[in-house]
Structure formats: C-alpha cells, structure tokens
C-alpha cells in the first residue's frame, strides 16, 4: 500500500477531473459550463455509488434518493429559513448521510437482488412521500424567489458560484474515492464484495462496514442536490427522485469499470458525451430524427458492454495489459 501521492493512477484521475472542471472557467462560456455541470454531476453520482456497488458489491437502484433528499432539505433551508447556500449544502450532505445511516441499518441486511429490490422500493416510497409532504410543497415542490440570488451578486454570478462548488465537490469525490479504495476500510469493503460470510469469519464487522460505506456514498450526492436545485430555482418530486437517474449512474459505472476509481469517471464522461451527441444530432433515420433513438442506442450499447465486456473499459484494460494495473486505479 503505497502513499497516494506517489501513485500515477491517482494523478491521472485527478488531472482528468480538474481539466474537465477548469475548461468552462477558462472559456467563460455558458454552454461549456452547462456541459460541465452535467458531466461533473454524473462523475460524482457514479463515483459515490461505486463505493457501495463497486467496492462493497451492493447494487443500489436508490442512489438518487440521497441527491433528492439532500436537495429538498437544502432548498427548504434556503427558501423557508433563509439560510445561506454553503450552510444549506452542508445540511443537505448531512441529512443524506443521516438517511443513509438509518436506511443502511434496515435494508443492508438484505443481500443480492433483495437489496436491489428494496432500494427501488425506497426510491419510490421517498418520491411518493415527498409528493404528499406539505412542508416541501407536496406535488409542486419548492420554488425559490428570484430575489434569493441577489445575495450572491445576481443570477449569473450565482450560477458561476454554484459551478465552482460543483467542481470542488467533483475533485473531492475522486480523492475521496481513491482514499477509500486504498485504505484498510476499503480493503474490508472489497472483502465483503468478494465473500461476505468469509469477511465475517475473518473479523470484519460487516454490518458496520456496510453502513459506513452507504453513509459515505450518500454525503456528496446530498450536497450536489442542493447546488443543482438552487441553480434550477426549483425542486419537484419527479426530478429529485428520478429512478432513471440512479440507473444511469449504474450504467456509467458498468461502462467504465466497477470497483475502480478511474472507471466511473470515464464512464460518466463517455455516457454524458454520447447522450449529448445523440440529443443534439441533426441526422435523420427515415423520417425520424436520430435523437429520437437516443434511448435505443444507449440501451443497445449498454447491452453490448454487459454481454461482452462486463468488467467495463478500465477493468478490460487492466485484464488485458497487466502493466497498466499500476497506472489505472
């Protein structure tokens, strides 16, 4: 176990995220910034879900719940209590962590597909509950007054401010992901992934380790939720708890390679670029525009990956070229 800063793999993944984040800032271009938002959000969601799915081996379809709950709590604090954004972001992260702790105690006892099913239930229960919950605006959600942005130098300034926040969280997320992977705690998680019963016999306190993995994976999505809904000016149950978003995060991890640090980053980047390209393409298939087939093409690609390279891009490279193991973390 070498020191993090001596490992080229760490610098590679960090450099990719820093470059992605910095590009729109140098360009000072709104379109580049919006692309940056989408890609960085995807990176954080995939990297954090990877702690539970890739390191620990628990497939969650409910990762977006942490994004949604964090976002709602943060928006509530800003809208109803008038708290400043950074405090709201902090509370968003903390409340997601708390939710993960309580949920983890309950549903992490389930294994395999039963856990996966339970997380779908949690996602839907959260969405339908919030849609009825009056303090959070029930079905219509929470909408911010335009005047809120004045405190941050106007809407435009606020957008850039949020962007810096997102870049910071994205950079932190890969450092965090790398740190966990190379720590003793991370080794314990990977032992659970490989064989949970053996892990208990070896002496890993599996209920605690799993719960902490779940909590650690929940914090950053919770913080991001606040930033994104603040940027949008409103939050609704359908956006906050979109099951498809959780599944997209799973797909990104699969694309890049689960259990690796670089995989979710590359997977998120690749998936979002592909989606962006398809959605803005002018090509026509017969009388229909290509963008109508975005879902079909994404589904087809994903199927090919699952059938033929289930370990993802990074996993495949690592298997194929053993020397790359040192570089591709």
């Amino acid at each position: 176990m070498r020191k993090i800063w001596l490992n080229p793999g760490f610098w590679l993944v960090l450099a990719i995220v820093v470059a992605l984040g910095a590009w729109p800032i140098f360009q000072q271009d709104a379109a580049a910034r919006e692309t940056g938002f989408t890609v960085l959000l995807a990176i954080v969601m995939a990297s954090s879900l990877n702690i539970v799915m890739g390191y620990t081996g628990y497939v969650s379809f409910g990762h977006v719940v942490f994004y949604g709950i964090g976002g709602y709590i943060g928006m509530y604090f800003i809208d109803s209590l008038g708290l400043p954004l950074p405090v709201a972001v902090l509370f968003g992260g903390l409340s997601s962590a708390l939710l993960a702790f309580l949920l983890g105690k309950a549903i992490l006892r389930l294994r395999g597909a039963y856990f996966a099913l339970a997380t779908i239930g949690v996602n839907e229960a959260a969405r339908t509950f919030v849609a009825n919950f009056q303090p959070f605006g029930a079905a219509t959600g929470i909408e911010l007054q335009f005047s809120v942005y004045k405190a941050y130098g106007g809407a435009l300034q606020a957008l850039w401010l949020v962007y810096y926040g997102v870049v910071g969280i994205a950079i932190f997320s890969v450092i965090f992901s790398y740190y966990i992977k190379t720590s003793k705690f991370g080794l314990g998680l990977m032992t659970i992934r490989e064989d949970e019963d053996a892990a208990e016999v070896i002496g890993i306190v599996t209920p605690n380790a799993k719960t902490w993995a779940y909590v650690l994976s929940a914090i950053l999505p919770g913080m991001l939720g606040v930033l994104f809904f603040f940027k949008n000016g409103n939050v609704e149950p359908g956006d906050a708890f979109r099951l498809g978003f959780s599944i997209e995060s799973l797909v990104m991890i699969m694309l890049g390679g689960q259990g690796t640090v670089l995989g979710p980053v590359l997977g998120a980047l690749g998936y979002q670029r592909l989606r962006g390209t398809l959605l803005t393409s002018d090509l026509m298939i017969g009388s229909l525009p290509l963008k109508d087939f975005q879902l079909v093409i994404s589904g087809f690609l994903m199927l090919l990956i699952i059938l033929f390279i289930p370990s993802g891009l990074v996993g495949w490279l690592r298997q194929r070229f053993a020397t790359l193991r040192r570089v591709l973390a």
Partner: peptide, 14 residues
C-alpha cells in the same frame, strides 16, 4: 473461499 478479485497478498493482509 479466496477473495478472487484481490491479490494473494491482499487476501492475507485482510
């Protein structure tokens, strides 16, 4: 019950 995707050394470190 080897931890298959970990190296032999990592198995023992655990």
């Amino acid at each position: 019950r080897p931890l298959k995707e970990l190296t032999v050394r990592e198995n023992v470190i655990v």
